[in-house]
Deep mutational scan, measured.
Amino acid sequence: MQRVNMIMAESPGLITICLLGYLLSAECTVFLDHENANKILNRPKRYNSGKLEEFVQGNLERECMEEKCSFEEAREVFENTERTTEFWKQYVDGDQCESNPCLNGGSCKDDINSYECWCPFGFEGKNCELDVTCNIKNGRCEQFCKNSADNKVVCSCTEGYRLAENQKSCEPAVPFPCGRVSVSQTSKLTRAETVFPDVDYVNSTEAETILDNITQSTQSFNDFTRVVGGEDAKPGQFPWQVVLNGKVDAFCGGSIVNEKWIVTAAHCVETGVKITVVAGEHNIEETEHTEQKRNVIRIIPHHNYNAAINKYNHDIALLELDEPLVLNSYVTPICIADKEYTNIFLKFGSGYVSGWGRVFHKGRSALVLQYLRVPLVDRATCLRSTKFTIYNNMFCAGFHEGGRDSCQGDSGGPHVTEVEGTSFLTGIISWGEECAMKGKYGIYTKVSRYVNWIKEKTKLT
C-alpha cells in the first residue's frame, strides 16, 4: 500500500490518463441519441435557420407576430419608411378606419389613436360632414345658397324668414311668412316636400332668348283662358290664391305678392273693366268669414305684352289694390325667389296649380277651390304637342294621358313649387288646347323671366 501511494504521488498524470480511459469505455446513459432527441424537440425550422439574422431580410411573422416588435424591426421587413409607417399605425392600436367614419364618399386613412378623412370636392370637416359648395344638395341650405369668396357655403332665406341657429334652416321672422300653410287642420295635408338634388348652379339658368321682337298675326285659340281631375282644397291650404270678379264672377285667378299687390295673367284683364279681388276665398257660393274683398285701382301688364300681336306672350300683369290686405292664416303671400332659384325650383319637376275653373272641358265651374299636382314636361315634348308657338318664356306641365289639367277660369292662378315646406311661385296658368285632352298640356308663363320686374313694381313704400 505504501508503494502504491508513492507511485500516485510521483505520477499524477498517469492516474488522470487511467481515469479518462475508464470513462470513455463506459456506456453513456444520461444523453439520448440524435434521433430520439429530435422526437422530443420537434420544432419547425425557421426561415433563416442556421444563418445569422443580421444578414437576412426581415420576416413579418418572425419579427412582429411571434413577439412584439419595434418600429426598427418592422422597418427591416418593409425596407421602406412609408410602408412601415402605414403598417405601424394599425399594428400599434388597430384600424381606426374600420367603422368607416368618413361621410359623403370620403376616404379614410388610419393613424395612431386617430384617423384622417380625405374629402371629395365640396366637403370638409373631420368626417367630411361639412358642405362647402352650393353645387351639392344646395349646400344643405333649406332655401338659398351662395358661395363666399373663400368658396364656403353661405345660406340665406327669402323675405319674412331668418336663418336658424344651425345656419342652414329657415324659420319665420314674421307672423305670416310667405308660402307657408298655417291653418292647423290643413298642415297635415301639406304636399310632399321637395329635397334639393345635386345641381350645376353655374349652368342652372337656361341660355334662352326671349323672342321679344317676333311679330306674329293673332292666333285663334280655343278655350285658351284655361282644375280638371283635381281635388277639393281645404280652407287655408292655398292662402296665396285669390279669385278675380268682373263682368262675371271667378273669371280668373291670381296670387298675393304682398298686402297691396296681386300677380295674374295679362290676358285676364281689360282696361276700363272694374275688377274686384277676393282673398281668403274657399267656396265661392258661401260666406265663410275668411274672405277679404278689395278693388283694383291700377293694372300693370308687362311692358312687352301686346294682345294685338299675341294674347299669351309675356302673359303676366300686376294688380294694385285700393287697401292693403290683412295677412292671416287664410290670406298669405306666395314666396318669389330670384331668377336663378325660381328656375331651379321649376326644374324640380312638379308643381301645384289651383283655381275655381271648370271641372271638365266646357263644363261647370268649381264651387270649392280645386288643386292638382302636375309634372313638368320637357321642352321637346311640349313643342311636338301643339302647332302653336311655345315661346321661351312659357313652359308645359300636365299629363300625356289627359284627364287632369287646369281649365277655363283658372287662368292667372299660381303654379307653385314647394321647397322644404315653403311654396314659391314658378308659373302662372296661361293657356292650353281644350282641357285635359290626351297628348295636350297646360301652358304656363315662366315666372323666372319676370321676377325682377315683379319685385321692382310691387315694392311697398
Rank of each mutant, 00 (worst) to 15 (best):
D93C: 04
T386D: 05
R83K: 08
A337K: 00
S107I: 04
C119S: 02
G229L: 12
W88H: 04
V227F: 14
V202N: 15
P414S: 08
V451M: 03
V56R: 00
Y371D: 03
R75G: 12
V154R: 10
D93P: 10
Y312W: 11
H34M: 13
R162L: 11
G230D: 05
V359E: 07
I454L: 08
G21A: 14
S169P: 01
Q370Y: 04
V153L: 08
R449H: 15
T332K: 08
W118F: 10
L189A: 11
A164W: 04
L189M: 08
H314M: 02
E208M: 10
W261K: 01
C119D: 02
T461P: 14
L372G: 10
F345Q: 02
R449E: 15
N36F: 10
L367F: 11
H314I: 01
R404Q: 07
H361K: 14
T158D: 04
H34D: 13
K293D: 04
S329T: 12
Y91P: 04
N113R: 12
T29K: 12
Y441S: 03
A265W: 01
R75N: 15
I262T: 01
N48A: 03
N113V: 09
I336Y: 02
I275H: 05
N393E: 07
N151L: 11
V451F: 04
V269M: 07
L460I: 08
S406E: 15
K339L: 06
A279P: 01
Q96K: 13
E456G: 07
F121E: 14
C134D: 03
W88R: 03
E281P: 09
L52Y: 06
E79L: 04
M8R: 13
A265P: 04
A265S: 09
P235Y: 07
L211S: 13
S182T: 15
K362E: 13
R226W: 07
M437Y: 13
I454T: 01
C134K: 03
I17P: 02
Y352C: 06
E165W: 08
W453R: 00
I390R: 07
F121L: 13
A9V: 10
N147T: 15
I454R: 00
A337W: 00
R298H: 06
L460K: 13
K168I: 12
R180S: 05
Q219A: 15
H415K: 00
S49K: 06
F221I: 13
C170H: 00
G105W: 05
D249N: 06
Q57K: 01
G357M: 10
L52G: 11
E434H: 14
V4N: 13
E434F: 10
H282T: 12
G246D: 07
K126W: 09
I299G: 05
E116R: 06
G427E: 01
E433K: 07
R298P: 00
E54L: 00
T16W: 13
Q237K: 05
F144Q: 03
K109V: 11
T186F: 12
I210Q: 13
V199F: 13
D315I: 00
M437V: 14
V353F: 03
F144W: 03
I214W: 07
V277H: 01
S114M: 06
K339T: 10
T225C: 05
L24I: 08
L103Q: 14
C119T: 02
K126H: 12
R226H: 13
Y305H: 06
C335S: 01
E82H: 05
I112D: 11
A250E: 08
N100G: 06
G409A: 11
H302L: 01
N5S: 14
I334D: 00
G421L: 04
S148Y: 07
P324C: 04
G442M: 14
A250I: 08
L20M: 12
M437F: 13
D322I: 02
S70F: 03
K188D: 07
L32W: 14
P172M: 06
G427V: 01
Y22G: 09
E456D: 15
F196C: 07
V228Q: 15
V202A: 14
G412A: 15
Q143F: 04
V227E: 15
K459M: 14
A233I: 08
T332G: 05
R191W: 09
Q408E: 14
K39Q: 11
W118N: 14
L319S: 01
K89P: 05
R83T: 12
V447F: 01
G427P: 00
F360W: 15
N127Y: 11
C128L: 02
E142W: 06
Q2M: 14
N48I: 01
E124K: 06
V92M: 13
G427C: 01
V248N: 14
W240I: 01
E61T: 02
K68G: 06
D111C: 08
T85E: 13
C145W: 03
E82M: 05
T389C: 06
V419A: 05
S70Q: 06
T458G: 03
R140Y: 07
V419K: 04
E72D: 12
V374P: 05
G442T: 14
V174L: 07
G160Y: 03
P239G: 02
E433M: 07
F224T: 15
T81F: 09
P414A: 11
E54Y: 00
E27P: 03
G398I: 04
T81Y: 11
